[in-house]
Simulated assay, not measured.
Amino acid sequence: MIGAPEGALGLATGNGWMNSEIFPKVLEHIIKHVRPTKERQIILIMDAHCSHLSVIARKMAKANFIHLIILPPHTSNKTQPLDRTVFGLFKTFFNTAANGFMLQNPGKGITIYDMALLMSDAWTKAATPMNIMSGFRASGIWPLDPHVFDDTDFLPSAVTDRPQPVDKDLTSSQNQPGPS
């Protein structure tokens, strides 16, 4: 993780995709640095990838005052704040850094060991407070704008409609139907 910001977490899988084994490590990292409490709870907005929906991750989040907001599938390009305003810029800045690396190191390929340094500068340039706030505004999260989307914006999620997962340990008795 040469060149990574202090406190950065580096995780990798064989196929490059998040999985339910490493996602709890991401939650541990968030808990360590944000330190949510009952008085200072947090919201984590994420897509509906199966790695985010494991029972272990959901229990860990609940036990640590993290509210998970799952976005409808195939809509994160509109509903995920960072997709709206940060990730495109990040990709542009990363590509510029990668091109510069290759010009300075002819014949040397970029390896996983070079990624932290290349990504760090790109992230710092893209993830500015102004860009992040703009993403929340564009996605209608803050300030809340329930009219930022219409029903047609969510049609792509209909192809993967599935029932909401239920975990009896996470469901409070208040949300259960009472005796008839």
Score class of each variant (00 low, 15 high):
N64W: 01
K59H: 13
Q104R: 10
A158E: 13
I141L: 11
N131G: 01
A48R: 09
P72C: 05
D150V: 09
D169C: 08
P129R: 04
F136V: 04
M133Y: 09
M133C: 09
L170N: 06
L117R: 08
M102T: 12
L71S: 04
N15M: 10
T13K: 03
R162N: 08
A4P: 01
Q164S: 14
K32D: 06
K168S: 11
G140K: 02
L118A: 06
T160A: 13
A158Q: 13
T13L: 08
Y113L: 12
W142N: 06
D150N: 15
G100V: 12
K78A: 05
S20W: 04
I132W: 00
M60F: 14
N131P: 03
Q174N: 11
M46R: 10
G14H: 09
L11P: 01
M119V: 07
G16R: 09
T75R: 00
T85E: 00
F149S: 01
A126H: 00
L155N: 07
I31K: 03
L144I: 14
L155W: 10
P179F: 11
I43E: 10
A122P: 07
I2E: 14
G100H: 11
R58H: 07
K168Q: 12
G16Q: 07
P163S: 12
S20P: 04
M102G: 11
A126F: 02
P81T: 06
P24Q: 06
L68D: 02
C50E: 14
R40K: 14
